[in-house]
Amino acid sequence: MAIKFEKLSYIYSPDMPYATKAISDIDLEISEGKITAIIGKTGSGKSTLIQHLNALLLPSSGTLTIADFTITSDKKPKGLKALRRKVGLVFQFSEYQLFEETILKDVAFGPKNFGFSEEEAIARAKEALGLVGLDESYYERSPLDISGGQKRRAAIAGILAIDPDIIVLDEPTAGLDPRGTKEMIALFSALNKKLHKTIILVTHDNEIVYESADEVVLLEDGKVVCKQDAHSFFEDRALLKSHAIIEPKIVKLKDLLMDKGLKLDNIYSIQDLAVALGGNHE
């Protein structure tokens, strides 16, 4: 399931005096089986870009290919349902999509739409709810009266229950507490490592990117600035500086230590750093 954007542009309200070109000439390939983080300032076009992955927006020009699906500007694409079964999209404000009487039913809604039987949909829903950390006591509660963070978990479960090959998440951790954030990131890593899902993560949190992503795509004003390996991205001081990107804490700490003369190559986690500094972590 390779994903390839070619010269893709999208313009909102093209006929209006206030037409905005949200993304332009995107040439990008997203690797299969990896966790790719899409970062960039507010308004840089991240959400616009990823909505194309479900053909919710059709390009104004250019093409997008996802495995054997091709999405272009001029036609109503066919096989949309099959595409959406393969690529699951969790929206930036996903907590507003809940509507069933109970959380369990709501999470089972997706699988049912994609043709799973009632029992199977419920089974998948239970599994997905377990993954996001909502236990049995939540099954029968109304999705409209739980907290924002719990709604978000339920919404993520709603997509996981469909079991897509590619999972796209737009700011999945906004509004979660630090512990919830950690759990979610661990979940995405596990989905990637154990079930070999391709994960695309839009986030403003560089700590998360550094910790979990394999590759980073940096967007600015609707254009791709660069796409590279996450670790080398954060080592590139000049690049970070010129785009006003705040480096993760561990990179900063390493910088300080290296300034003092320590040699710390190939160290990318707190654990490794502790060991390198002479501690004996596990």
Binding site: N54, Q97, F109, G158
Partner: peptide, 13 residues
């Protein structure tokens, strides 16, 4: 539009 899009992603036609 936003809610419609979320539901389309969940297979609603």
């Amino acid at each position: 539009i936003r809610i419609m899009n979320s539901q389309k992603s969940r297979g609603v036609d």
